[in-house]
């Protein structure tokens, strides 16, 4: 195999893994909120953007250790999750139209607040991890490998939390039958707040990392939200397995398609692939018929 082909294959595999893991972190949070509170939090993308900017601000303007900046971003955005549950989602519980309007409001306010306050349209968080891994002719950024490992570890942690802890069991119970859960004495508000915190913290982590992996713009949340929606539709909304699988597909396509295609054809082919899959599986790959 030609040297250049090997280089391309290795780089593409790494890109696909990093992108997929970050997409999945976001889509998983979105799915959490949908399953547990029945809300479609379209503001999830701006939460990701805010997380990215907090980390950027802490690391470059305040100048603290970058990993600490990441933790602060996660903590602040996680707390914001509690605020969202209490003051945004709870008052409009069960009213999908109101939630959409509130989310649009949140998107507009936060995106424009950041756009106005930032002197540059595009910025970047410095690298979290310096250095390059060299194996023969292949050279890879350590940062990419570390980001992938962080992504995978968080995914495992979250899945363990859902499947192995009492709170996780309660979350699944709330997701499956809200009233049934209330009647077991489960504190649904607490479970919802917990879901919000987890979803926001995951979004902030992905945002903080992506601020260094990609770049920061006030509109970064919108681009990524389209990816999240692609993943949800493809995987079947509400399905965690669907998120994992579809996240891997979308991330891989995003890394692989540009190798052969260029320009907007990439997005078109991506949509075509998704549409073809949905023709055979209208519920998404792992979707179930939703109860009427």
């Amino acid at each position: 195999m030609a040297e250049s082909t090997i280089l391309l294959i290795v780089a593409t595999i790494v890109n696909a893994l990093v992108l997929s893991s970050m997409y999945i972190l976001l889509a998983l949070g979105f799915t959490f909120l949908f399953n547990i509170m029945g809300i479609l939090n379209f503001a999830h993308g701006v939460i990701y953007m805010i997380g990215a900017y907090i980390c950027f601000y802490m690391a470059t303007v305040v100048g603290i250790n970058q990993w600490l900046a990441l933790l602060i971003s996660v903590a602040v955005v996680g707390l914001f999750g509690i605020f969202m549950e209490r003051f945004i989602f709870r008052p409009f519980f069960g009213n999908i139209n109101s939630i959409i309007v509130v989310c649009i409001g949140l998107i507009t306010v936060l995106v424009n607040a950041v756009a106005i306050s930032q002197p540059y349209n595009v910025q970047v968080t410095p690298a979290f991890v310096q250095g390059i891994l060299k194996v023969g002719i292949v050279s890879l950024s350590w940062q990419r490998i570390v980001f992938f490992l962080i992504g995978v570890s968080l995914l495992i942690l979250v899945l363990l939390f859902i499947n192995k802890t009492k709170q996780g069991l309660q979350m699944r119970a709330v997701a499956q039958d809200l009233e049934g859960a209330i009647l077991q004495g489960i504190n649904v508000h607490f479970v919802s707040a917990l879901a919000c915190v987890i979803a926001c913290a995951l979004a902030a982590t992905a945002g903080s990392l992506m601020g260094s992996y990609l770049s920061l713009t006030p509109y970064m949340g919108n681009d990524i939200m389209i990816k999240v929606l692609e993943i949800l539709v493809l995987g079947g909304i509400g399905s965690i397995n669907g998120v994992l699988f579809a996240g891997l597909i979308v991330g891989t396509l995003d890394a692989v398609l540009p190798i052969w295609l260029s320009g907007t054809a990439t997005q078109a082919i991506m949509m075509l692939i998704i549409i073809v899959i949905l023709l055979f599986k209208p519920q998404g790959l792992f979707g179930k018929e939703v109860r009427a």
Binding site: L169, R172, A173, Q176, D177, E179, G180, A181, L183
Partner: peptide, 11 residues
């Protein structure tokens, strides 16, 4: 114990 049982079907 509610009407219609309201179990958690996937658990």
């Amino acid at each position: 114990v509610p009407e219609g049982r309201r179990l958690f079907p996937a658990l």
